[in-house]
Amino acid sequence: MKAKLVFNDLSITPAKTESEARKWFTEMITAVADLIKNGICTTEINSNINLDDFLLTDDYGFIEWKNDDKVNRDTRLLALRLLTRKPVQASLQALEDDFARSEFKLKEYPNIESTALGVALLHDGIVVSLPSKRLWCQSHIEIIQRLYNENLENPEETFFRVRQVSRPNHVDIVIRDWRRSLSQHIKSASELVMQWTSAFPNLDMCEEYEQKMLPHLHGTTLKSVLDKLWKLDETCELWKKTKEQEPTYYSMSANPESPGTMNIKELAEMRLSSCPYQGLQHFKMHCRIQATNAIKLRGQP
């Protein structure tokens, strides 16, 4: 599964200079490039306007930026691959009814409406903005959805936070948030298998036990498994970034394997794994997921 990208047309603001306009485009496209490189999205951006159709100064827009020798060539080549899908709600399909009965407004400026942010919310996607104002220079935007009933009356107001990238430093935060949401929306064991690499990129699925586990993953047990998988993936993400020899952080409980298990060569060898920055080692810890059934996941080496 890939995240939908939605361009925030509210972020189009005149730049004071060509240099400022160049910087805004560069930061935004670099962030998009990082999302694509991480496999989070495709090169398609949902938008109400074509990115080539607006200027940030009297004579400098996206077309000029793509031909600007002062900009990194690889970044410009990536921009040439971007495709705009119009109108912004074109990809909603099954969600069209919710969109048609809704108004989406900025929480900070409730008089300002934004269909683009609403589309990103309904898709559980990612807003792409130019870093032209403070509001567009953060990893989330707070919005209000006013959802009317079938008679277009009695709207219900709900507050939401929509993911946003306008600078490269937003990317890691947004990716983790999107993956967390993806894991929370998994409703079945088969969906878990299908979404595994997107939701838990730091974990390998153990094919040997896949069939043994699948029949038990439903209801409370499935939720417990998903929560523990997420925490384990978070821990592995931290290991990769810190490169610690002996990680000390755990967001989940872990218990040592019994000496009886580790003293049996065949059982010990079953716990061999290639770990980030640590080489091939035995798994000596495990976490227990216990809801309606007890299931073990192999954890820290």
Results as ranks from 00 to 15, higher is better:
5 L>K: 04
8 N>A: 13
9 D>A: 13
13 T>Q: 12
15 A>I: 05
16 K>Q: 11
17 T>I: 07
18 E>N: 15
20 E>Y: 02
24 W>Y: 15
26 T>P: 00
28 M>Y: 03
29 I>K: 09
33 A>H: 08
33 A>T: 08
36 I>D: 02
36 I>K: 15
37 K>A: 10
38 N>T: 02
41 C>W: 03
42 T>E: 14
42 T>N: 14
47 S>Y: 04
50 N>S: 15
55 L>Q: 12
57 T>V: 11
57 T>L: 11
61 G>M: 01
62 F>H: 00
64 E>C: 07
69 D>K: 13
71 V>P: 00
78 L>M: 11
81 R>W: 03
82 L>Y: 07
86 K>I: 13
86 K>A: 08
89 Q>T: 01
96 E>R: 14
97 D>T: 13
104 F>M: 04
104 F>R: 02
107 K>N: 04
108 E>C: 04
109 Y>R: 12
112 I>N: 04
112 I>S: 06
112 I>G: 03
113 E>N: 04
113 E>C: 06
117 L>R: 10
119 V>C: 08
119 V>G: 11
120 A>E: 06
123 H>Y: 10
133 K>D: 14
138 Q>W: 01
140 H>K: 13
143 I>A: 05
145 Q>D: 05
146 R>W: 06
148 Y>C: 04
150 E>T: 02
152 L>G: 02
152 L>A: 01
155 P>S: 07
161 R>F: 06
162 V>D: 00
164 Q>H: 02
169 N>I: 05
169 N>A: 07
170 H>M: 09
173 I>A: 11
173 I>V: 14
174 V>W: 04
176 R>F: 06
176 R>I: 02
177 D>I: 02
181 S>W: 08
189 A>E: 03
189 A>Y: 00
191 E>I: 00
192 L>I: 01
195 Q>M: 09
196 W>E: 02
198 S>V: 00
202 N>K: 09
206 C>A: 09
206 C>N: 14
208 E>F: 12
208 E>I: 11
210 E>T: 12
212 K>Q: 09
212 K>Y: 08
218 H>S: 15
219 G>C: 07
221 T>D: 05
223 K>Q: 13
225 V>T: 07
227 D>T: 06
233 D>P: 06
236 C>T: 01
238 L>K: 09
238 L>V: 08
239 W>P: 01
242 T>V: 09
243 K>N: 12
244 E>M: 04
249 Y>A: 11
250 Y>P: 01
250 Y>I: 08
250 Y>F: 14
251 S>K: 02
252 M>F: 15
253 S>Q: 09
255 N>M: 14
256 P>W: 02
259 P>G: 08
261 T>Q: 01
262 M>R: 06
264 I>G: 00
266 E>Y: 05
269 E>N: 14
271 R>M: 04
272 L>Q: 14
274 S>Q: 12
277 Y>S: 12
282 H>V: 10
286 H>N: 11
286 H>C: 05
287 C>I: 10
288 R>L: 13
289 I>S: 03
290 Q>H: 11
293 N>A: 13
296 K>Y: 09
297 L>A: 08
298 R>W: 01
300 Q>Y: 12
301 P>D: 07
